[in-house]
Design a protein around this nucleic acid. Structure first.
Lengths: 190, 190
DNA sequence: CGTAGACCATACGGCAGCGTACGGAGGCGG
DNA sequence: CCGCCTCCGTACGCTGCCGTATGGTCTACG
């Protein structure tokens, strides 16, 4: 079993550093030389592990795709009560948008050719899971899908609003809870 | 009264061209030399009218701020019936996001230092107007504000969804109308 | 111990974009 | 007709970034 020396870097190290840079400065911050410097290496190392910059972006996005969405779904799905599941999901993801810049950065680059397909998959996965939650609440499939989509747009809108006017989005946990309660009340009304 | 010869350009010409470029390729497309070429001029002209690139971006954003938001508000405000006013607003802005890329481009650059303050002002203006519409419907001020904010996040979320997964957002006018109806029904429920 | 291969640093070429220097054209008043 | 002021084209330097070429170093392994 080969032990990896600290001085050597793996492709995953680069992908992780790329995600960090992306969270801080957007897709434009994923620059080979800058990340190399911040990693204490040079481009020579990078171009050994990756063909080009696009390959790095793709790797970072793949990691984001597998790590974030599925982890949240697994965590939420452990909650037994259907209504509490929905509430837990909304609270979790809305809270996440306030410290996890990555979410909103990916959103802001939706039209990038490398981002678009990943984002489309993640979005579809999230909406269908949310729709499933409404199905668990007893709504028929079509209706569940529609309400799930509404819940998702409420989430997206809140995330965007937090960026556009942070001062309007009170970040206290009670305020967040009130917002979620309001959304849930409206969106589960029969 | 000095007549302006066609060969000469004004600062407003540059701002307009910058908005066009921005609508097509985002903030990164607002490049001095590229816009100059597309305008049939060179940088020499540009740096006579503007100090630097940031000044051009600022001018373009100012024009967007004054032109778009107020125009929509004036148009919507001509509708006499309060409920129809709300419906007209939602239909108009949601439809607008499908052919007016500018909206969503500005959103996607929310964290840019030049964009942030403009976007904050525009957002606050829009939310407060939407809140006023709910006030017209008879809701008390605090409640109107809260519902206005919800309506606005529904709009933002839909705009983001249209970018993330265009295939999920049916662009037919009837589908759009159904979505708006659903949102209004939920959001005006007492 | 020695060699092959994995890994990386250095150096280079190229491109795109910003900003500056400067000269020239063209209208307009004197 | 002449000079001035406005406006613009040309040429240049600089920086940041991508990608390549090439040689060096370290490690596993025979």
């Amino acid at each position: 079993m080969p032990r990896r020396p600290v001085s050597r870097l793996t492709a995953d190290d680069w992908a992780g550093a790329a995600l960090d840079a992306m969270a801080r400065g957007g897709l434009a911050a994923v620059a080979v030389e800058r990340i190399a410097a911040q990693l204490g290496a040079t481009k020579g190392s990078f171009y050994w592990h990756f063909a080009n910059r696009d390959a790095l972006i793709a790797a970072a996005l793949k990691r984001w795709e597998t790590d974030h969405t599925e982890a949240v779904i697994r965590m939420v799905d452990a909650e037994p009560d259907p209504l509490q599941r929905l509430r837990l999901l909304l609270v979790t993801v809305i809270e996440a948008t306030e410290h996890d810049l990555l979410e909103v950065v990916v959103l802001s680059t939706a039209d990038h050719p490398l981002v678009a397909p990943v984002l489309a998959r993640v979005t579809e996965r999230r909406i269908s899971y949310t729709a499933k939650l409404f199905g668990d609440l007893g709504f028929p499939p079509a209706e569940a899908r529609e309400r799930g989509l509404l819940a998702f747009t409420a989430y997206l809108g809140h995330a965007q609003l937090a960026r556009a006017t942070p001062q309007l989005v009170q970040s206290s946990s009670t305020a967040r809870r009130r917002y979620v309660d309001r959304v849930i009340a409206l969106i589960t009304a029969r």
